[in-house]
Amino acid sequence: MTKEDLFYLYDDTETTKTRFVSFMGKTNRFDLALTVSSRFYGKVLVLNLQSNRFAIVGHDDLEEEGYLEHIYQLDEEEAEELREFLAQSI
């Protein structure tokens, strides 16, 4: 397949800012990469480097019940620790 055979929806290059952070909560260690880009409409790409799970997260998502638990496959206590960190960091 050549480049001419592909139908691109977009192909952009952007300079982003990524923060790598590791912290230990009461129940779990978190190793995260938080990437800020204009593409996410004010939200942050949050990658959990241990589980290889990621989501585009904003403050509205932190308020949604069960969101972090589902996306990152965490129990309630682990999700609350992540929620508290992200509320201060994004």
Results as ranks from 00 to 15, higher is better:
40 F>L: 05
21 V>S: 02
82 L>S: 04
90 I>C: 07
71 I>Q: 11
72 Y>C: 01
26 K>I: 13
86 L>Y: 02
33 A>Q: 08
89 S>P: 03
32 L>C: 02
80 E>I: 03
77 E>S: 13
90 I>W: 04
59 H>G: 12
8 Y>D: 00
74 L>Q: 02
51 S>D: 06
51 S>H: 01
2 T>H: 07
86 L>N: 07
53 R>T: 05
13 T>S: 11
3 K>A: 00
71 I>Y: 02
13 T>V: 14
68 L>Y: 04
16 T>D: 10
17 K>Y: 13
72 Y>D: 01
81 E>W: 08
4 E>Y: 02
51 S>E: 07
68 L>N: 06
21 V>Q: 01
44 V>D: 07
25 G>L: 12
39 R>Q: 11
1 M>E: 11
77 E>C: 09
3 K>R: 03
27 T>V: 10
34 L>A: 12
14 E>F: 10
76 E>N: 07
17 K>E: 14
10 Y>G: 00
14 E>H: 07
8 Y>I: 00
71 I>E: 05
56 I>S: 03
29 R>E: 13
17 K>H: 14
57 V>K: 07
68 L>W: 02
79 A>H: 01
11 D>S: 04
74 L>M: 09
40 F>S: 06
82 L>M: 10
38 S>C: 05
72 Y>R: 01
69 E>W: 06
71 I>L: 10
7 F>T: 11
4 E>V: 05
24 M>A: 09
50 Q>Y: 04
37 S>N: 09
17 K>L: 14
43 K>Y: 06
70 H>V: 00
64 E>P: 00
67 Y>Q: 06
2 T>E: 12
17 K>G: 01
28 N>R: 15
47 L>M: 05
85 F>A: 06
27 T>S: 12
59 H>M: 15
